[in-house]
Design a protein around this nucleic acid. Structure first.
Lengths: 139, 139
DNA sequence: TTAAATTAGTTAGCCTAACTAACTATATAC
DNA sequence: GTATATAGTTAGTTAGGCTAACTAATTTAA
């Protein structure tokens, strides 16, 4: 067992329990983790088109259609026409903006608990490792 | 954006591209990443029952049933009766053992490429961070 | 200038990888 | 000896992706 294999084993092993807990946190807001990822992206990076959301999340366009339409239905986001008649810009609704702040506050303590006992410096290193892998994998 | 939130964002962002690439690596063996996770567990930790596999992978029993039955169908694993008539122990077949060695060799270079440019020390730290989170989340 | 190619988003239908509820068969506890 | 617990299975559901094929709008090029 090399240290690389060990890392990826551990990476995968963490996924299910993490997503499960995250979904429990999000349940009061009728959100799943994938929908939350979209809200967070719009909050952090501002309004973006469907294609831009797809590129950022490295998922396909039809998957974005489903996610965003659900968020529209919930009243958390709205769309406006983009730079031409084809493009639609997705942005948080006023209600959505409030909600994101509220959820982020709640998740803050969940994340802190999950990382309890881990030095800040190690969290930073781990984040950089994950970012580097993303870069390496996506060419 | 706290460093904890940043870490988990990055964690989630990596998942899809990683699993996608891993599945491409496994495709010649008619395996998906979840089935590979079972083979690797049996290889690393020896024969185990369905319940033990479920506990280790933190998935439910019916999910294990499906995974293992597929692996039996492929001829990669076999079952023997366990310590009583209810329990079945799952173990790699001779063919399965060979295959695991072969796949591990192939994945070794995939993993090394994915971690290219990351110091060994940082990989270790990141692995420990992931392990600690697993522990914290699963109580 | 109009025909071909490209781009943004949608629809329909599929798949993986999980889940819960309810079941059978066996084993254990009271 | 009956009630309870445990191992595994079956049936049906779900989240969260996917591809193929479509419409409408835009750009390229002949």
């Amino acid at each position: 067992m090399t240290i690389e294999q060990d890392f990826f084993n551990q990476y995968r092993l963490m996924y299910r329990p993490f997503i499960k807990q995250l979904n429990i946190q999000l349940e009061p807001y009728q959100l799943y983790s994938s929908q939350w990822a979209v809200l967070r992206f719009l909050n952090d990076k501002g309004p973006h088109s469907f294609v831009e959301i797809a590129n950022f999340m490295t998922i396909e366009k039809p998957s974005v259609t489903k996610l965003v339409h659900k968020l529209i239905e919930l009243g958390y986001v709205e769309t406006t026409t983009g730079k031409d008649k084809r493009e639609k810009l997705v942005h948080l609704s006023p209600y959505g903006e409030e909600l994101v702040q509220k959820i982020q506050l709640q998740l803050k303590s969940f994340f802190e608990q999950a990382l309890a006992g881990v030095p800040k410096q190690d969290i930073d290193i781990a984040t950089q490792v994950l970012a580097r892998i993303c870069m390496n994998i996506n060419q």
